[in-house]
Design a protein around this nucleic acid. Structure first.
Lengths: 148, 148
DNA sequence: ACTTGCTCCTCTAGTCGCTAGAGGATGTAG
DNA sequence: CTACATCCTCTAGCGACTAGAGGAGCAAGT
């Protein structure tokens, strides 16, 4: 029914931006769709499902490589799902760590803002607190779990 | 006392990696330190404080540009601290959004793992749940608040 | 004195997942 | 028929580093 959509229509349909769709094709995450006579991409329902799958997985924070594995598994459905399960579990651990890190961070930011006297920089707790940790040599949080 | 440290010693002291220190110098976040006869950088206590400040701010998730502003404010302490306060508040809002997104995400991952029958991919809920969201056109979470 | 191995230097290029822009062709509505 | 939107390809840029090449210097042990 919704077959042969243009890239723009596909983009609107599945919530992935036009250049991003082209990018996914380029890196081989989405198979190159057939083209019209005028060289325009035409997407079918299967492509849209795949794009929505990718988008949702990205929203869940899965990396492109993990999604690639998931898609490969999906394309060959007669394997044990242990791999997919393992990916999801690894991701859950990461997510929990990130939540923990961000919660600690939030507390620190709230303390900073709370104690700000709204005076001059010289008395400003935001800057003072940031500077006060100068002494600490060991990182409080692992960098990797906070960024990216 | 701890004046004139080598870049390696400075790195150990403040917990910022050697190439990262050089990178900060390159982008003008850290003033270029004096060199020895053999062209090696020498860092003083002030540099170390600045580096620790940067590191802590990065750990709190502040972007380089925000840190640049904070450092400028720090260098000129007779201004109102409203700017620093605003930066911290903006950051707090971001952090809260990220926590919310990740919490929703965690619930979803847990449901995925929970419902996995450990059978074949054909029955695997991990992939099914990811694919099932195909219909949704509106993003559940803003991309920007989840990634980076 | 010599060698081993660590640290330092500069430079370029790569990472990830896009995003922006140039410059041009094609499709659609009034 | 003329706007204007949309499409195409291509290259370059983003943030915040990280990795590696290729070479110089320094400190300690034999």
């Amino acid at each position: 029914m919704n077959e042969n959509l243009s890239i723009g229509a596909a983009s609107r349909n599945c919530g992935v931006k036009v250049p991003t769709i082209r990018y996914y094709e380029q890196i081989g995450l989405l198979p190159a769709p057939p083209r019209t006579e005028a060289n325009r991409r035409t997407f079918n329902a299967r492509d849209l499902r795949r794009l929505a799958f990718i988008r949702h997985a990205r929203e869940l924070g899965f990396e492109i490589d993990a999604i690639r594995t998931l898609l490969t598994l999906q394309d060959d459905p007669h394997q044990p799902c242990a791999t997919a399960d393992a990916i999801a579990r690894a991701r859950l651990t990461e997510v929990q760590q990130r939540i923990d890190g961000l919660t600690a961070l939030k507390a620190e930011l709230e303390a900073m803002i709370e104690s700000c006297r709204h005076g001059e920089i010289a008395d400003c707790r935001v800057i003072e607190i940031l500077a006060d940790h100068s002494r600490r040599s060991q990182p409080m949080y692992a960098n990797a779990s906070l960024h990216r």
